[in-house]
């Protein structure tokens, strides 16, 4: 009961002291803050599980979207500026092309490493010291799907950041606060 009688200003000071200060200096709600701090790592772990936790193809796109959803949650709770600090524009471009290079590069490696005896994207022919079906499963699960997931996550996050970002009247970049 005594905690409820603390004035709004006192609550704001307490929020700043505990590091719950939003982008615009106002304190964030403690429930929103706690839920975001718990849910962001959990959803990122779930995204990794969807991407590489299961044997066989499928799940790269869905895992990437779930990872992007965790970044979107981070940007909506802690401010778009903080989200951009976590994933800057340059790194975003590098990562979104890196995923495509992983996908195409593994397919090309199958062709290159066997001197043209295997086709493009023929993962089963990749020279790994395990049996045929396992080779294909490992490559698809741990290389190709991770590449797809990286590209999808960064492109989705970039879409959201570009929509939510706002420039002020002088043309300077300024993260949108009141999302």
């Amino acid at each position: 009961m005594s905690k409820r009688t603390v004035s709004k200003k006192g609550e704001r000071e307490a929020g700043k002291k505990e590091g719950r200060e939003g982008a615009d200096g106002e304190e964030r709600d403690v429930i929103v803050d706690t839920v975001a701090r718990v849910m962001i790592p959990l959803s990122q772990m779930f995204a990794l599980y969807v991407m590489i936790g299961t044997e066989g193809a499928g799940g790269g796109f869905q895992g990437g979207v779930i990872f992007a959803a965790s970044l979107i949650l981070l940007a909506t709770v802690f401010g778009v500026k903080k989200g951009r600090d976590v994933l800057p524009e340059g790194e975003n471009a590098i990562l979104s092309s890196l995923g495509l290079y992983i996908y195409a590069g593994v397919g090309l490696l199958c062709m290159v490493l066997l001197w043209g005896a295997a086709e493009y994207l023929n993962y089963g022919a990749f020279p790994l010291p395990v049996e045929y079906a396992l080779r294909r499963g490992y490559l698809v699960t741990y290389a190709v799907e991770v590449g797809i997931g990286i590209t999808v996550a960064t492109v989705f996050a970039s879409l959201f950041f570009d929509l939510a970002w706002r420039e002020d009247v002088l043309g300077r970049d300024e993260g949108r606060r009141d999302l």
Partner: peptide
């Protein structure tokens, strides 16, 4: 279930956030 999973992740999760971000303008 895989299609339902994608629908829940993309339709209910990501595209709602994108549309709200667009609505903020």
């Amino acid at each position: 279930p895989d299609v339902g999973f994608t629908e829940a992740a993309v339709g209910a999760g990501a595209s709602t956030a994108l549309m709200i971000a667009a609505l903020s303008r």
